[in-house]
Design a protein around this nucleic acid. Sequence first.
DNA 1: CGTTGCTGTGCAACTACATGCATAACCGGT
DNA 2: ACCGGTTATGCATGTAGTTGCACAGCAACG
Lengths: 182, 182
Amino acid sequence: MALEHAILVSLAEKSASGYDLARRFDASIGHFWQASHQQIYKVLGRMEGDGWVESELVAQGGRPDKKVYVMTPAGRDELELWTSKATPIEHLRSEFAVKLRALPFGDFAAIVDDVRVRRRAHQERLAYYADSAARFYPDPDDLRPDEIGGWLVLRGGILAEETGIVWCDEILQRLDPEGTER
Amino acid sequence: MALEHAILVSLAEKSASGYDLARRFDASIGHFWQASHQQIYKVLGRMEGDGWVESELVAQGGRPDKKVYVMTPAGRDELELWTSKATPIEHLRSEFAVKLRALPFGDFAAIVDDVRVRRRAHQERLAYYADSAARFYPDPDDLRPDEIGGWLVLRGGILAEETGIVWCDEILQRLDPEGTER
DNA sequence: CGTTGCTGTGCAACTACATGCATAACCGGT
DNA sequence: ACCGGTTATGCATGTAGTTGCACAGCAACG
């Protein structure tokens, strides 16, 4: 139910076409809420029906026309209403955790490999976040009010990835102590 | 796609009825993979069709009959096959993160409240996990092989909740420094 | 001159999951 | 005698999201 609101936030920052939004979801926002372009187009249609956004067809030289969506006052009201209500607590849902519990019944070596792959993925994302933080927020002690949200989200990502690495290391320590020390 | 496998893991540990499984999902397993009883019954039906499980009707004095499901050799093969394949990396999906990015456009006080609610939820779950760890794994340096998976999953939960609390504290420090110090 | 890749929008089919409802018997309390 | 709770199984409907496919023009590369 949050895709609508993620789109509203994005449009509040800057009006955009569905294609633009899809790219934003591939980049910054998408690290915390993924959406395919198909899904975005579908939801944008619904949002226009609800009066939260309006679209304008913009012709472009050479390139295909695009529909630029703009948030309406009704959309801004909806966004504020949404922030005023409590966020339902989302609990973990980890296929990886299920796999760990399957350890006694499964392929031990493959699972250990899986942990290593996972650790690498965490490290890569951590590096990406650290880089983003350094680039977009070089001085985190002196942020503009409109920067605080983005910074805090990035911090959450960094903390989560660091924790993921710690967990993987604990797992590897248990399952393959020699391989870990090497 | 992992509900089938979560059920297989659970049945590998002990045969059970749909009702029993639903209760297990409410308790231990469910902290990392939730499922309603409706969903469980539906998936059990499909799994029986695929030959991964077999059911036997058991009459009970007084109480309603129950269908006890037992994992078949084909089910065990499937479980092992599943563990041998890499787990797709699941990325974060946090409505809460979206809400943080909505800070400049939303209800500031309500969002701060939301962080506090969230922090409390993390603390409660952390306490629950810590309690489970103390009760079921009193001596974590000396675990039986079949206990390692459960222990590691619990460790993951503990690490995740601790990180959640740290994140909430960072957020409150930024958004409401006076309220935090009090 | 063909292939690949980017920009741009969208439909159709399917799956997983949530929500609401239905049924049925037994047990304990007021 | 009625009410609520527990055990036990399931259907029916709806929604969010995934996957696959389609169309269209332009640019760059070999």
